[in-house]
Design a protein around this nucleic acid. Sequence first.
DNA 1: CGCTGCGTTGAGCTTCTTCAACGATCGTGG
DNA 2: CCACGATCGTTGAAGAAGCTCAACGCAGCG
Lengths: 228, 228
Amino acid sequence: MELVKHLEEISLFSGLTSADYDELAMIATDQEFRRGQTIFNQGDEGVGFYVILNGRVKIYKVSPDGKEQILHLPGPGETFAEVAVFTGSRYPAHAEAADKSRILFFPKSSFIGLIRNNPSLALNMLAALSQRLKRFSNMIEALSLKEVPGRLAAHLLYLSGRRQDAIEVELDMAKVQLASLLGTIPETLSRILAKMSKQDLIRLNGPVVRILDRQGLTDLASGETRLS
Amino acid sequence: MELVKHLEEISLFSGLTSADYDELAMIATDQEFRRGQTIFNQGDEGVGFYVILNGRVKIYKVSPDGKEQILHLPGPGETFAEVAVFTGSRYPAHAEAADKSRILFFPKSSFIGLIRNNPSLALNMLAALSQRLKRFSNMIEALSLKEVPGRLAAHLLYLSGRRQDAIEVELDMAKVQLASLLGTIPETLSRILAKMSKQDLIRLNGPVVRILDRQGLTDLASGETRLS
DNA sequence: CGCTGCGTTGAGCTTCTTCAACGATCGTGG
DNA sequence: CCACGATCGTTGAAGAAGCTCAACGCAGCG
């Protein structure tokens, strides 16, 4: 079965036996979404969770006046909506394909059965949720304790990984989306990128950011410095 | 063993056999903290997780200039620092006893062993983490998409539960802490409470809030209304 | 009794959003 | 193939929300 090949590359499913893979393949359904298509809406009945084979998905909240806050933007190999599996309730956010995407769907009840008989799978899932929780904590911290320049700096550093020598970073999404992920609006993001350029922290070239002053960014991200 | 009695009341441990309780009691250590005492700091090695028997614990982040953002304020029967168990890394936030507290500590490795042999425990833990994740999503939404009056209104409604007739709510923490939980500062909170009083949404009496206009609060919380 | 932490209020200021306008790019349908 | 609309990105000017700083009353507790 072709699906099994894909499943083996998903880190959530690492360490499983081939019998497990067969079972997973049995309960999964393979779905295609075009860019912009809604996968589910906040408040919909949480019937299962998803694993992305390719493409990207935007998980987001919306305010009554239409402003969006992106919570998460998973890509190939990543999962979303796991929460629905374990809280027996409704999806707490919206999900929409950010690109043309191929996605596997796992219905809640069959998946719970699998977990019950499969400690590795349970532990993998616990690790995934914990990881997500940690990222959300950092997001809360950023929104509450850092100003936009700090959040942006942190994001740039995150993208560049830990490597001291990484000079160029490619923004992996449109700036509108980046703004939404950082909890701000495109105008503000644009102004701050411009200001960072002017102060020779970065050099901006379309979606490519060249990092000129890593230390400066680090100081901004930790809140020690201000972007006058 | 006295501990077992306590363990049976923890919802994370519901549905376990008495043999399981004995095992849990074996690996747990019983600790006392006085009000204000640090339990661990962000960045400390994540050696295990905690269950509160009585008291309360403040889980929080700090900005370089000392401002705090409370992530979570668990009380009796609740757990914290589970994330450390499954991500094999450091604590992502600070923990401090908000009251004199009695707390059980479970070392990481023994607990993982328990989970591996105990699907119910794994599922309970998954449910707990999912619940937390949902709350964090709401927090992110609130910080990014709602203004302080909206967050406060949402919190008041949350405290009053779903009951339409609940008139009085007791703020279950000092206002400084409530401010930190809502991602603002005491001054702002104070002003907004005053404004809500002036507009007859609530009546304020020390730590007791009488809800006068539930609909008004609901509108604020959903962002439909503004607190002019 | 004094001290410390809490809560409130005022004044000024910073940051960010809102509103508006405009250029550029890109995909699509005529 | 070109033209059009839509989305994206940028910039300016004005306004709002919330923060900082400062002062002060008040209560609890050693």
